[in-house]
Design a binder for these strands. Sequence first.
DNA 1: ACCACCCCGTGACCTACCTCACGACTTTCA
DNA 2: TGAAAGTCGTGAGGTAGGTCACGGGGTGGT
Lengths: 188, 188
Amino acid sequence: MYSKLRQHIEKLMPLTDDEFAFIEKHFVFKKFKKHQFMVQRGELVPYNYFLLSGLTKLVYTDEETEKQSILAFAMEDWWDNDFEAYYSRTKATLSMECLEDTEALCLTLDDFNALRTGLPKIEHFFLEKVTAGFLAGQRRILSLMTSSAQERYKQFVGQHPSLLQRLPKTQLAAYLGVSRETLSRLDL
Amino acid sequence: MYSKLRQHIEKLMPLTDDEFAFIEKHFVFKKFKKHQFMVQRGELVPYNYFLLSGLTKLVYTDEETEKQSILAFAMEDWWDNDFEAYYSRTKATLSMECLEDTEALCLTLDDFNALRTGLPKIEHFFLEKVTAGFLAGQRRILSLMTSSAQERYKQFVGQHPSLLQRLPKTQLAAYLGVSRETLSRLDL
DNA sequence: ACCACCCCGTGACCTACCTCACGACTTTCA
DNA sequence: TGAAAGTCGTGAGGTAGGTCACGGGGTGGT
């Protein structure tokens, strides 16, 4: 159960058994059911989540129109959260919802900080992770600014072919930033 | 000249004189003129830049249409670069161009790595910085997906009022992801 | 002092995408 | 097992914003 986390970290930096034992004890294992909210708008965000299995979406819902915009999908081996609310201990503006039953290792902000001070080299790991996330964000911004709906769809298929089968088109459309109808009309 | 860098870092973490002396010696000071390219598409990216004064844009140019999309502006106290190319030592897909004469402290990737291994706690500083950049990126993505050109303009004015006077509207339009003409037609 | 270039607004037209509406088929669950 | 809810395609019509074209004022360089 925790071995996935260890493998995940060791892709970027080696760990001694003692170090991993120290890391491990800050996480809590939790299970969530499909349709369950792991983060809910308006609530505090108790944990950061490292996913072991399943599939989630990170979504913003317009209060008037109820229209959803999906910021990210996450699955096995990914971190996901309303990071803004988590780090600042404020109420979530985003929601994170399970699209499938999912299992996660959960880390409170206090435990995260304890981890950083008790094992400073873990910051190297998180720096790499956040940098990768930052760069992915930049590519997404560029894609939204320069590409048509059709091009964005093709980019998505190229990058995440495995997700295509697991995702309803409605969700994919909300990620790409187009309506379900136009996504359905793109001939490919 | 280097004191701005020290103040900048010490907003997030205290430094001893020895520590800062170690940091300082990895940077090189450089001056750039308006219209000069600090990073040019197709070239390698020798440095990461911490700006002391001036104003730059980070821009993607469509090869066919020549249309520009601006990913970021940067000014005093900001870091800016084609980070993707810098970290991976590949050729830039973005360009970074001076909109005013600017002065910068420049850090090669080798010096950056030397800095990280010689002073591990600096990773704490960069982790905070990159996290802030990641969150800003998420907000931008959401803004592009949910807001109209007019709303995005107002958000920009709210967040960067000082930049409004320094920027030609053409550049602002390229940042907001609309044409110069529609920006000019927004009544405010 | 001039010329080239940038900056900015505006009119006319075009199109990618949105919204609303409907129907059929499938999955979920009480 | 039946009702409710989710999934997906498609038609009709609307609109935000793009593109192209023009003109006038400002500015920097030789």
